[in-house]
Write a protein that binds this DNA or RNA. Structure first.
Lengths: 76, 76
DNA sequence: GCCATATGTAACACATGTTACTCTTTTAGA
DNA sequence: TCTAAAAGAGTAACATGTGTTACATATGGC
C-alpha cells in the first residue's frame, strides 16, 4: 500500500522526526511506513490524516492493489 | 475506538459471516472488531468502508478518545 | 419445546505493526 | 572538504490484529 505521507510532510514542511513527535510515534515508524515497509495502524493513519487535514483515503493509496500484479512501475 | 460497523451492516442487511466473506476475513474478526475487542487493520477498515460506500472516518469513530475519560455513557 | 440461524467468546498460534538501539548513507551548507 | 541534519536501514523485543476451533447464548419459526 503506497501512501502520500512524504508529500504531505513536504507540504507541511516537517522532518520525519517532527512528524513522529506530533503523532507520538518513533521516527523509525514514520520512516518505515513512508518507505512502505509496513502499513500504518488505523490510529497512526488517522493521526497523520488529521494533522495534514486530509482523509485517510487521501493519505493512503489503497487502489485495490491486492489483485493487480504489474503496477507501480516507475521508469528506472 | 468505537465504530459503526454494526449499523452499516444492518443497513446493508448482512450477517457477520456474509460481511466477513465479502472482505475476506473470518467472522471472528468481524465480530471482534464490531465488539471493540481490537481495531481493524487499515485495509480491513478500507474494505469495509468501501463496501458500505463510506469513508473510514465515517465507519470508525476516532473522536480522539485518547484524552477523554468520561465518554460514551449510554443510559443503562 | 425443538431446531436453525446469528452472534458472543475463550485459548492458543501466527502475522503484522511499533519501539529501542545502533549504524550507515544522503543531502545541503559553510 | 568538512560538518551536521535528515533519512534509510538491521535486529531483537514487544504490542496488536487475525485465524482456528470449539462451544455458549440468543432469537425466531415450527
Amino acid at each position: 500500500m503506497k501512501n502520500n505521507i512524504r508529500i504531505y510532510r513536504a507540504i507541511h514542511n516537517l522532518t520525519q522526526e517532527e512528524l513522529a513527535r506530533k503523532i507520538s510515534v518513533t521516527r523509525k515508524t514514520v520512516n518505515s511506513i513512508e518507505g512502505g515497509k509496513y502499513n500504518p495502524s488505523i490510529d497512526v493513519a488517522y493521526k497523520m490524516a488529521k494533522l495534514f487535514n486530509v482523509t485517510i483515503e487521501e493519505l493512503c493509496c489503497f487502489e485495490d492493489e491486492e489483485n493487480t500484479g504489474e503496477n507501480e512501475k516507475v521508469d528506472e
